[in-house]
Amino acid sequence: MFALNAQSIAQTTPTGEAIAQAVMSGWALGTVKHCVLMRRGFNQVYELHFDNGRRAIARLSAERPRGEPNIAYEAALLLHLQARRIPLAAPLSTKDGAFSLFLDLPEGPRALMLFEFLPGDPPGESLVDIEATGRGLAQLHTAAQDYAGPASRYALEVPNLLDASLQRMLAAPTVDEPLAREFSALARDLHDRFATLPGLTRVHCHGDCHGSNNFMTDGPDGSRVAAFFDFDDTGPGLLAYELSVYLWVLLPRSLEMPASAAVLERWRRYLAGYTTVRAVPEADMAAIAPCLALRQFWIMGEYAGRIPVWGTQAMPTHWLRKQAPLMRAWIDLPTREGLSA
């Protein structure tokens, strides 16, 4: 038998039973009768059912390429928003008043957080729900304006989204020298583009509002209401980036496939919902298209940082060769005029 040391373990996956035991030890919420792994992605997410009928969601933070989890800022921002009646999955405090419990795992300590369970379904293709999502995000941004809690570890700005991501990509074994030159040139062009866009609006961003991190329900007046969750990527940053995330999900991943009329209508309705609450200055609208490329750089940097866990085929070379041309096409996308005509 060959023994591995802790430094040889990339990431373990605790069972639902193990998470249930940790929750009953750290939180005074009663007996967990059922706990199951829901999703293994950037983090590991579990659903819990308690004997008293309560449900909750546990998130076990995985090692992120960026560094430590942003727990103090995330929890404080969520409580700030909750106090201003923004519908969301609020964090649940432990017995000692903290918002995380660290589990001693083979690869090292990892933070476990617990959140309220949200009912409902994602907005999907419903135009009414998509518009309500945009409206809800604008209300969230407005409510966060006077946040004065702990500072964020991370900002959703060019240095973190682009520069740090590029460095992780350049270290990936599937990025060869031609790709390294191509991505580096594109990064320089993006820097030049953002240099022409001064005075962009900053907000406290959700960070990952792509249409599957909010659930829809009916409000007291019958209107559709968006409730938000999964603030793991939250932070202060560019409004244009925050808005670009939804469009980034909608757009085809091929230059040969133009966006359909249905996709364009979803984007229009999303913006329409947002702008019923908050105006989007022209400079920020102009920045949405280059922010699509920032988002793609960020996701590739996240994949590159997870190669020890996900493997090299999470970002194979043949896939990477398609990304720079796609991002260059996105940079000049007319996000207001062309998509709202």
Rank of each mutant, 00 (worst) to 15 (best):
V309K: 00
M1W: 10
Q139S: 12
L77D: 04
R135I: 08
R188S: 13
S126P: 02
S100C: 15
Q313E: 09
Q145W: 02
A172F: 04
N43L: 08
P159E: 14
L339A: 02
R336K: 13
V45M: 04
E131S: 12
I130P: 01
A227K: 10
S260N: 08
A83P: 05
G30D: 06
D192T: 07
L294I: 13
P258L: 11
T142H: 11
F229W: 09
R295Q: 15
S93G: 01
A58K: 01
T15V: 07
G301F: 04
P122E: 03
M1K: 05
A28W: 02
L333V: 04
Y46I: 07
Q21D: 11
A262Q: 14
P123V: 04
Y303W: 13
F297E: 00
L197I: 08
L197M: 14
R266H: 05
A148P: 01
E125Q: 00
P281K: 12
C291N: 08
R321Y: 12
A10L: 09
A180W: 04
F183K: 02
P258H: 07
K33R: 12
E68N: 11
N213D: 05
A28R: 09
F117N: 14
T234V: 06
A329L: 06
E17R: 13
F42A: 13
L238Q: 06
S8W: 13
F183N: 02
L48P: 00
V277T: 11
R253T: 10
L37C: 15
A10P: 00
N214L: 12
T217G: 06
L239I: 06
L60Y: 06
G207Q: 04
L118R: 11
S8G: 06
A172M: 14
L78I: 15
L88T: 07
G211M: 07
A56G: 06
E17F: 09
T133A: 15
R328V: 10
G219E: 15
P106Y: 09
A286N: 11
L101C: 12
V277S: 01
A164C: 05
D232S: 09
F50K: 04
L137W: 07
Y46C: 07
G97L: 14
T234E: 02
G30A: 10
L127W: 03
V309F: 10
E17V: 07
V203H: 00
P236D: 13
A83M: 14
L77S: 03
R55H: 15
L294H: 09
A56R: 05
L161I: 10
C291R: 04
G301R: 02
A259E: 09
G108N: 08
E302T: 14
F183M: 12
R168N: 11
T174C: 07
E68C: 09
T312D: 14
I71E: 06
P87F: 15
P258K: 10
A240I: 08
L137N: 06
T142G: 05
L339R: 02
L179T: 02
S254W: 02
L114N: 03
Q7Y: 08
